[in-house]
Design a protein around this nucleic acid. Sequence first.
DNA 1: TCTTTTTGCAACCGTTTGATTGCAAATATA
DNA 2: TATATTTGCAATCAAACGGTTGCAAAAAGA
Lengths: 106, 106
Amino acid sequence: MRRDVFQAIADPTRRAIISLLALQAMTPNAIAEHFQSSRQAVSKHIQILSECQLVNQKQTGREIYYHFNAQKMKEVDVWMDQFRALWETRFSQLDNVLQNLKNKQS
Amino acid sequence: MRRDVFQAIADPTRRAIISLLALQAMTPNAIAEHFQSSRQAVSKHIQILSECQLVNQKQTGREIYYHFNAQKMKEVDVWMDQFRALWETRFSQLDNVLQNLKNKQS
DNA sequence: TCTTTTTGCAACCGTTTGATTGCAAATATA
DNA sequence: TATATTTGCAATCAAACGGTTGCAAAAAGA
């Protein structure tokens, strides 16, 4: 059972759930209303997000509000640091210009 | 067959391959030497990376050099933009301080 | 030419994934 | 108390995943 952040954001439905919760904490039922699949299917996605701590839950009565945990998402950002220089430097921009010229020729 | 960038970086072996190729373009054999699994298994990972355009190939003779495509990785970075404000603003830092205090109390 | 090297592709196999349905527990409401 | 609502959990299933082995094609070297 791999339960890391990278595996969690691999599924498009889970990415959509994350985007929803980043705007506002919601209950499973409220989340499920945004999707066509069953409540249980959405609930399983939430469970996966919960296991890798991308979301936290706060129970009030019988309702459970799921909150997005931005700090966990930062782990992806940290991994991406090693590539960021490759598209931010002028060198790579120059490379792109040359590459585009080459593609137009061939 | 989902073949997007998010699915591609979900696997730890593929992430390692990407990190290797970001430093230097390599042939499948050279890549496979860095891992314990078979060359064919690594080759399948490369194929997936190739299908979602995270790597490009340049053939010279019978050798194929795989190059990392940073621009494609940028798609992940763009998706993360929506969350970046949540950990960079002073507001969220204040939230963390309050949260930590709350956790220590309970 | 014959052999070696490099690579991709197909077949197979056990495990995981993402979805479904059904059901039980806990809380709120009439 | 009886009923409705909210939620989680278990069982099931087809498809995808990640690995293996075997083999064929193309290029390089003896």
